[in-house]
Design a protein around this nucleic acid. Structure first.
Lengths: 232, 232
DNA sequence: CTAATAGTGTCTTTCAGACATTATCCT
DNA sequence: AGGATAATGTCTGAAAGACACTATTAG
């Protein structure tokens, strides 16, 4: 930065103070991913013109991006307590025809059971949303999927897309959805078994031997070579 | 986003237009990493108060973040043509005492031979800069190191910290510096050998068998399990 | 019992790590 | 020749992929 001194009397080389420069509006958008019927979906909100967009809002004076994102999730999607993180800043000058608006894309993920009943979902195939989204929101979703895969190769279900307890089969089905790839049953079990802890309980499925229920371990870190198993 | 219609007549639920909201100043800062004497360093610029900071600048009206970052590198550090990318937006409301300033941190890396002679460098130990930096720039450097390691596990020297041609030994020394870890000579060679192409030429070192010179391959992708070799 | 699913044992292939050996320069 | 460094071959252990086998439920 060229910040040359403290205080409000700062001037740049042209003698202009900070407030003399036109500034952009800053927005946040959140790509909330979830799994329904074995497919990735993203939460969208309707727009007056009938299109879809990610939940988002403008940054308020003095507000932090994380607070704005939390507010957008709460007021636009009815979600509270959802974890998220930054993905990238989208900054094309013409991305919003209302003016100069930068938007910080955020990624989040949660079980579809935790979504309000009236939540609107759009399917995601690979990295691509199945329906057009407003602005550059489709690119934000692609970023979110990449980020999800990266984080899921490092830890077991770090976003909690599964409920508190789950079977190894449920975990594998989740990873097959996230990575869009069939995963071998035994290799997958050996990959994750040291990152989860068994509860004594078992799942009461219809027929067949009942599967043991596990929960995420404290860290839940996967082996460094997990990418070899999970990616093509 | 709550963007509800096109055009400049947009109003929010309180009837305010976009321009009625106070907006933050947006800045960019770039952590330029390099290797000198087998250690990671970061490019810094002096401040009037005698401290150090990353090269950065304010975003100008209608400008893209990448253009501002390029401008900052050129005017503050004398660098042109250096590749970089976004890391994270730093947004603490009090991070800059001149006012409300968000800053997009960027990461870059290049050979120290390509730096201007008068470039100021500060050593980086692990993820930590050896000297205090202004604002939250030390956290930006930590981000840049994490990002560098991640990208170097996916591809062979993607930022071009080495020159056009290099020996396997030079490449291994670079990776040992980046990952702050001794790497076995033969395992490392087998890891990278399929991602580089031999030039017929050899390096004329003092004594011993001369090492063959290689160059990066088109993609230079490493095996998916590279993390197992490179990380602890 | 059979059907169905969960979980394990084992074999093969691959590859990291260690070590020894060969290759090719210098003095 | 002898020293030094590069590059390769070989052995071992760990782990993935494939497959078969055992375990435990429902009917």
């Amino acid at each position: 930065m060229a910040r040359q001194s403290a205080g409000t009397s700062w001037r740049d080389r042209a003698g202009k103070s900070l407030t003399d420069y036109p500034r952009p509006s800053v927005a946040v958008d959140v790509a909330v991913l979830t799994v329904r019927t074995g497919r990735l979906h993203v939460v969208v909100v309707g727009r007056p013109d009938g299109g879809w967009a990610l939940p988002g809002t403008f940054l308020r004076p003095g507000e932090r991006l994380a607070d704005a994102a939390e507010r957008a999730l709460r007021t636009k999607a009815g979600l509270t307590g959802t974890g998220f993180h930054q993905l990238a800043m989208f900054d094309a000058p013409d991305r919003d025809d209302r003016g100069w608006v930068l938007s910080m894309a955020h990624g989040a993920a949660l079980p579809s059971e935790d979504l309000p009943a009236d939540t609107q979902l759009v399917r995601v195939d690979g990295r691509t949303v199945a329906e057009p989204l407003a602005f550059d929101h489709a690119a934000m979703v692609a970023h979110a999927v990449d980020d999800l895969r990266e984080r899921y190769t490092r830890r077991v279900d770090p976003s909690g897309l599964l409920q508190e307890t789950f079977t190894v089969l449920e975990l594998r089905r989740l990873y097959e959805t996230v990575f869009d790839r069939a995963l071998p049953k035994d290799s997958f079990r050996r990959l994750v078994i040291d990152a989860i802890t068994p509860t004594g309980r078992t799942a009461s499925v219809g027929s067949g031997r009942p599967a043991e229920l596990f929960r995420r371990r404290g860290d839940g870190d996967l082996a460094p070579g997990a990418a070899r198993v999970l990616t093509d």
